[in-house]
């Protein structure tokens, strides 16, 4: 009796598992680390424009490792939104194919390579911002290098090294101490030691917001949009620092996988996605700054105002891409 019941359960389960098949027509698969709301918006707009797209989302780090592991048989058709270094490293591994989208015309050279594989569609500075209730322009840090001063101890927050933002700001600082090949001087590593020792650290976004909310921290190192979003949650309006020596800008790119079996559809999607009107609509929705000048011109005023708020630090991302892992390894094993 009892035994029969168990057997029945198992059989029902088996039937249930087998009969519920998968449905995948001929939509293209896009790997993206974008936030849930952003992806929802993009898929909606893409569908309205006649593109069949399925998004697969995961953290930037996992997505990158996954793409590397799947190298022999790529499951993605398009990679959308990994940052400069990650895109450069995938490109070096010959994982992308050439496609020059229609919107590449007029895109500044820093946002596209000569090989025509990766094109950047939006950009954002990783800034220093502070809570004006706690600091004044006189007492606030003037540059990234000021953060190691004793008065800022514990007042700025670092996320884990797997966060894209953390990687960008560390790269920006180390590149100030690096030669043309990306070899960092001893002085640079001494600085990094103090920089870490002086920081508060968290491993998720919620904890970070809490530190600001409670007033324990008041200097935010974050990407532009994130700074304002987090500050709103913590209850203040941030003031930006135009750092001496420049502020690192990070740009996110789009590329088509070399092994894509739906390259034609993928190309159409890329052509559509980066077009100035779509980028401008995205900028309006999420307040993010497009890379394309035409898209910036179409964007709402508050997005346009963002350009020129901080001066860019010129960084050769190809050099960073080659060095980043060894830098992070040193930080993780010897500094943290």
């Amino acid at each position: 009796m009892f035994e029969k019941k168990i057997l029945n359960t198992i059989l029902t389960a088996a039937v249930f598992v087998m009969t519920s098949g998968s449905t995948l027509a001929d939509s293209i698969t896009v790997y993206s680390p974008q936030g849930e709301e952003n992806v929802a918006w993009i898929s909606q707009q893409a569908e309205a424009a006649g593109h069949e797209v399925e998004f697969l989302r995961a953290g930037g780090g996992e997505l990158f490792s996954r793409l590397e592991a799947e190298k022999n048989n790529p499951q993605a058709d398009v990679v959308l939104g990994l940052n400069d270094t990650a895109m450069a490293r995938l490109k070096f591994q010959e994982m992308f194919q050439k496609h020059i989208p229609v919107w590449a015309d007029g895109l500044p050279n820093v946002y596209k390579g000569r090989d025509g594989m990766v094109h950047k569609f939006w950009q954002t500075p990783v800034v220093i911002a502070y809570n004006p209730d706690k600091l004044t322009p006189e007492t606030a840090p003037k540059s990234w290098l000021d953060l190691v001063k004793p008065e800022f101890k514990g007042k700025y927050v670092l996320g884990p090294t797997k966060w894209g933002t953390t990687q960008v700001l560390l790269s920006g600082m180390l590149m100030r101490f690096a030669d043309a090949d990306g070899n960092v001087s001893d002085e640079g590593w001494d600085f990094m030691n103090t920089f870490y020792a002086n920081s508060a650290s968290v491993n998720n976004g919620g904890d970070k917001v809490n530190l600001f909310k409670q007033g324990d921290a008041f200097i935010d190192l974050s990407w532009f949009g994130g700074t304002f979003r987090e500050a709103a949650k913590a209850g203040y309006v941030p003031t930006l620092v135009n750092s001496e020596g420049g502020t690192p800008f990070v740009a996110e790119g789009i590329a088509i996988m070399a092994g894509s079996d739906q390259a034609e559809d993928a190309k159409k999607f890329v052509d559509w996605f980066g077009a100035p009107d779509v980028m401008a609509a995205y900028a309006e929705k999420f307040g993010q700054m497009p890379a394309h000048p035409d898209a910036i011109a179409l964007s709402p005023a508050e997005v346009q105002e963002q350009t020129g708020l901080v001066d860019p630090q010129l960084i050769n991302w190809d050099v960073v891409a080659a060095k980043l892992d060894s830098w992070l390894q040193k930080i993780e094993l010897e500094i943290k």
């Binding site: 697969l56 998720n204 917001v209 994130g226 979003r229 987090e230």
Partner: peptide, 22 residues
């Protein structure tokens, strides 16, 4: 995170998605 595809996104991924957001 490494093995799911667009047809079988599991609940743990859905949770993490929302946990990572600030």
């Amino acid at each position: 995170a490494f093995l799911y595809n667009v047809n079988n996104r599991p609940i743990s991924i859905a949770i993490l998605d929302s946990d990572k957001s600030t």
